[in-house]
Design a protein around this nucleic acid. Structure first.
Length: 587
RNA sequence: CUGCCCGUAGCUCAAUUGGAUAGAGCACCGGCCUUCUAAGCCGGGGGUUGCAGGUUCGAUCCCUGCCGGGCAGGCCA
């Protein structure tokens, strides 16, 4: 017989069901924890579900099931309620047993058994062309917490960052760096408005100069500008002007490649590595770590992009038009067909993304999770379409969209424009509100919900701040335990029968629901559920703390209460760890 | 114009994958520190879940149509 009440109750109900309705013996038995305390510890809607197929009154059916339910010492009371619910109230022993279990398993409490399922989570994957900003921060916090949550639930998780080190954006960064560098040597090229504006580019240029002096500056202004169409005036916003600015930029890149020759890849690589290591350091400080940094360029180097496209071609999903290769994604539910190879022979970003997903499938993951910004939602049909076209199961891929985060200060939106290079970086945000508050606030909302990030609230060291509220509960337990001079073994042996008041039993019920919560939150891609649970658990603890003393004269009662407190501390610490938030021993 | 997401208390948000009387925090009002951390607790008012239908024992949740907000719709990434 199982010690887990939920499993036990399911077994009892199955037995009853077998004798009441043998032909419905395979029906799904769902047990839930009622919101209201007077509805017992567990409830099932089994009779309501079976009423229709059996053509019976649900309340009568519930009564019949109860009549056939085998007796169990763990069940104190059963009743038929409402429209036909069956409510179960557990015996006190069964409720408090969780304390012993938490103390015995320690940090492993809540961890699910290994499912033998390999999951890959790819997140952040920002272009390494500048500092991470607050939008990336949400993806980072969400992805890290989701990964840890899935790992805790029993999945085998690989955390991956896709590095866009190929393509035009990186060329623009290399060019931007080089132009800033040239300025140090008096070669003043008008800085293109569509190049990277940030001061970090000037910093890189300075490093380049300090390390290599004029090695990359043996050119003239005329050579750099040779063949460029020139820049339209800044006021012009028409399409023609925009296009000319892009052509101008591309011509500058072409000149840079020609003039620098073998040094170009070096400058390119320098800028890439600077930005990549900056991002890596930023994320590491934020408690966000990756198992693999996957290079987009490697997809070209290994010929995978070519192979992916030819595989689509062989399957008959590619056609030629206007000199370009198109993937017929409309056959797979997309709005329009998409180019994979341009007229100029270059592959599109979409082509390398197809190759990347092919690679993910070939690595044998059972579940592939992409975390994208919500502005990429239109991209999902074409990627799933390409996967299906390659003969792979698209349902293995799950795309989790993360909505935008908007910063508020003094009740006002703060601007986040990237155009001028004056955006709020993740680093600035972390510095201002601290890593703990950052991580917690980022996952406090459902991922598909817009996030209003209130800077003043995140910084406030008061009851208004949910982070401190939870951490404070943890610190309080630590403080009490520190003032007690006993041994941990005494707690494990405490007489839990002494836990009798409502607050104590409610706390036990909350602790007992934690493992299920981990499973549900992991399955739903919803780390915010952990945050809400922790707030609730902390609230129950604070309430109990104010109502009862733990270190009382009665030795047995003291040990029982300290054991409960220690169990609460364990679960708080475990939950906070999933969110990447520290659990301080004092505050 | 088309597609996706969202709409819940004055504000910011939950609601155990369709459950019972829709819950928290903030804000507002009133209480609790000579005893384990007051970054805490206790009590009070606050709702036609955007609107209208449909599906069923039962809908904030699922379907349809409107209204309102956000985001997309490149041979960019």
């Amino acid at each position: 017989m199982s010690a887990d009440p939920k499993v036990l109750l399911t077994e009892l109900l199955r037995t009853a069901l077998n004798s009441v309705a043998p032909d419905q013996a395979d029906a799904v038995i769902l047990l839930e924890r009622p919101k209201q305390a007077n509805h017992g510890d567990f409830a099932t809607n089994l009779a309501l579900q079976l009423a229709k197929p059996l053509r019976r009154n649900p309340r009568e059916l519930a009564a019949l099931l109860l009549a056939e339910l085998p007796a169990s010492p763990l069940v104190a009371k059963t009743e038929v309620a409402g429209a036909g619910f069956i409510n179960f109230t557990l015996a006190a022993d069964a409720k408090t047993a969780v304390v012993r279990e938490v103390l015995a398993r320690g940090a492993a409490y809540g961890r699910g058994a290994s499912k033998g399922v390999k999951v890959q989570v790819e997140f952040v994957s920002a272009n390494p062309t500048g500092p991470l900003h607050v939008g990336h921060g949400r993806g980072a916090a969400y992805g890290a917490s989701l990964s840890d949550l899935r790992a805790c639930a029993g999945y085998e998780v690989t955390r991956e960052y896709y590095v866009n080190d190929a393509g035009r954006q990186m060329d623009i960064l290399a060019l931007s760096t080089w132009l800033r560098y040239l300025a140090f040597f008096g070669i003043e090229v008008a800085f293109p408005p569509n190049a990277y504006q940030g001061d970090y580019v000037i910093d890189m240029a300075r490093e380049l100069r300090d390390a290599h002096q004029d090695r990359f500056a043996r050119v003239t202004l005329a050579q750099v500008l040779d063949g460029t169409p020139g820049l339209p005036t800044a006021e012009r916003k028409d399409d023609e002007a925009k296009q000319q600015r892009e052509l101008h930029l591309d011509a500058l890149i072409a000149n840079a490649k020609r003039l620098l020759g073998e040094d170009y890849p070096w400058v390119h690589g320098f800028a890439l590595n600077e930005q990549l290591s900056d991002g890596r350091e930023d994320l590491a400080e934020f408690g966000v770590r990756f198992d693999k940094w996957f290079s987009e360029q490697s997809l070209f180097d290994t010929g995978l992009v070519e192979r992916a496209v030819s595989q689509l071609e062989k399957a008959g999903h590619i056609y030629l038009q206007d000199g370009a290769k198109w993937f017929r994604s409309t056959d797979f539910g997309d709005e329009k067909d998409r180019v994979v190879q341009r007229e100029n022979g270059l592959y599109t970003y979409f082509a390398s993304d197809i190759a990347y997903h092919l690679n993910k499938y070939e690595r044998g993951f059972d579940r592939i999770i992409d975390i994208w910004g919500a502005d990429h939602h239109g991209y999902i049909p074409r990627v799933k379409g390409a996967i299906a076209a390659l003969g792979l199961p698209p349902e293995k891929l799950e795309v989790a969209l993360v909505q935008f985060a908007v910063l508020y200060r003094n009740g006002q939106k703060t601007s986040m424009s990237t155009r001028s290079g004056e955006f709020v970086t993740l680093r600035e945000l972390r510095k201002e509100v601290g890593n703990d508050a950052c991580r917690f606030f980022y996952v406090l909302r459902k991922s598909d919900q817009h996030l209003d990030f209130d800077l003043d609230l995140a910084k406030s060291q008061s009851n208004e701040n949910p982070v401190y509220y939870v951490q404070y509960a943890h610190a309080r337990v630590c403080s009490v335990l520190a003032q007690w001079d006993g041994e941990a073994a005494e707690l494990a042996a405490a007489d839990l029968g002494r836990l009798q008041n409502e607050r104590e039993l409610a706390l036990c019920a909350s602790l007992a629901s934690y493992p299920e919560l981990v499973q549900n939150a992991a399955a739903d891609y919803a780390p915010h559920q952990i945050a809400f649970y922790l707030k609730d658990l902390a609230a129950e603890f604070h309430s109990w703390y104010n109502a009862e003393r733990m270190r009382v004269e009665d030795e047995a009662l003291k040990l029982a209460r300290l054991a409960l407190a220690a169990a609460v501390k364990q679960v708080l610490a475990g939950g906070l760890a999933l969110l990447g938030v520290s659990a301080p021993a004092s505050m």
